[in-house]
Design a protein around this nucleic acid. Sequence first.
RNA 1: GCCCAUGUAGCUCAGUCGGCAGAGCACAUCCUUGGUAAGGAUGAGGUCAUCGGUUCGAUUCCGAUCAUGGGCUCCA
Length: 657
Amino acid sequence: MRPDNYKLEKPREILVIYSLFLKGGSTIKIRIEDKEFEAPGPEEALKLLRERGAFALKIDEKVKGFEALKEISPDMTAEGLTFASKEGKDIYRHSAAHIMAHAVKELFPSARLAIGPAIEEGFYYDFDVEKPFTPEDIVRIEEKMKELVKKNSPFVRKVVSKKEAADLFSKMGENYKVELIEAIPDETVSLYEEDGFVDLCRGPHIPGTGRLKAFKLISIAGAYWRGDERNKMLQRIYGTAFADKEDLKKYLEFLEEVKKRDHRRLGRELDLFSIAEDVGPGLILWHPNGALIRKTIEDFWRDEHLKAGYKLLYTPHMAKLELWRKSGHWDFYRENMYSPMEVEEVEYEIKPMNCPFHIAIYKSSLKSYRDLPLRFAELGTVYRFERSGVLHGLMRVRGFTQDDAHIFVREDQIGEEVQKILDFVVFILSTFGFADYEIYLSTRPEKSVGSGENWERATAALKMALEKNDLDYRIDPGEGVFYGPKIDIKIKDSLGRLWQCSTIQVDFNLPERFDVSYRASDSTEKRPIMIHRALMGSLERFFGILIEHYAGAFPVWLAPVQVEVLSIAERHSEYAKKVADGLRAEGVRAETNLENEKIGYKIRVSTMRKVPYLVIIGDKEASEETLSVRKRSGETMGPMPISEFLGLLKNEISARR
RNA sequence: GCCCAUGUAGCUCAGUCGGCAGAGCACAUCCUUGGUAAGGAUGAGGUCAUCGGUUCGAUUCCGAUCAUGGGCUCCA
């Protein structure tokens, strides 16, 4: 229990402290959101910081609270942190987490505190409580937080010895805090107190609780202490905080939009796919509409691969377990593989990867250096065991189709080949409207195979390829796969969310394990290097991303129904059918709705199915042999001859719009 | 796998403090032949996720199982 009487030393009048430390006459230089200011004294500096919405400082690349104003000497510039900066956001939200913890302690005195950091979109705090929180509790906690904010109590920092802190927290029964303190390498730790609530914290914090202008508690979830499933499950409350109510509102609207676009919901509404309990979790059933979109994507993918010099393959869904032993997957990957099955006393395994099959095809005949680079590509369906709790619609499944390719190259060809792949990736992804990328180059991890020299050369080749293609990238040190360095590409969808789909991996390992070789120009036998690469990653997942990216409104080239012909009355059925047949004969995916319903109703139904073009057929059109077009956006296009509409459609389809 | 929540018609959801189960949409039939986002009537549709327990009686209470959802890698 928290001792009620424990309080840190009360703040003396803040300004008095500052003026003690600042000699009269010197000015304080402050930068706030790229603007430079000079204040004649600390009072003015503080006033300026407040006015400009700053609530913390950055001095010498270190974030600090306002109390650090006293450390400033005239030759230094302090940066006033506002919500606009990443550091500012983190401080602000971290303070919100503390205020939440305070509220929880008030309402649930026996709750023990774990950690409460700021995260990308908000903050959370983990609590050890006897009973999990209910949604009603969350409302109460939020109300209590509002009270605490209203009090506007100052956050006061105090530095104490580890021992003192440990004693304090063990007296309070805060065993998690004691554990945290023990793990801190420094001699001293800092505590923050506001309105009688003390927490261990590196800080800094906003000056007072009143600075928290807009926040909302979002959800409750279980989370293991220190993220380790062997530890106790704690209760986590997620929340978010913004500089003002307007931004919070926008964020909550964004969450609504995300919900509206949820591919599981749209998948059902548009009849694209389903997951059936009696078939099995994580296994996708593609309905006709979804299958048609997939077919269109696959056709595009195959055509472009052939143009880019790839050879297409098909390989089986299972193979002898021995193959996976040889490839190393059985050793490295077993927990994600299904149990083997016995066939005529030989163990077989359903495939988690396509690579060994491609190697088998490579090895089916002798290869010359003239054959390289040899590009094998396959839409290969693989099965991987995913723990039940992590399955999620199309995004995380147990059976999926990789747009996989394995390219066998000579070492000196890596750079050029990777450049080509990068070009290809950008081409394919931009076709789906993904124009922004984040690219990561992952280098050698601790546990890895291959010589240091190989790694260096391959990493340098990847780097060179990125630079030659003029792509910005970041280095992810030590995040490569054990068998080679890789490039990962994340795409940004129409809501600005990042998804990793493409990956390009250099592999020194498999060619070695399978003794893959080619005959070099000097007639010696050499080992090629393999490049694994996927553009869309998993077709299932990519499809899920596309659904959310387009909000279900697929562009014409992908839309399962491109045109729906709607008749006004039954006497127009004949002509409507003729129009639809004519469009279909030209390869357009056209359907009719000749139902005995009013046109307004038919338009509504088709609009909700997100059909890109509606063709309206009535007396006028039937007599003049024309058609009226209504776009998905609601825009109408006056009567035009079929040929004109067809031309317009075909243009759009061939431009993949 | 773990924590919590949820599971009622094809979909979205109401409901029963334990006594034969409801709405809207979708579907079928009929009326209406209607010009740019919902015309009207009638009807069909459910082992209330599954299995077990308590009870005279369970969709409802209890337990287990399965599935779905939010999280479990953001480190004071």
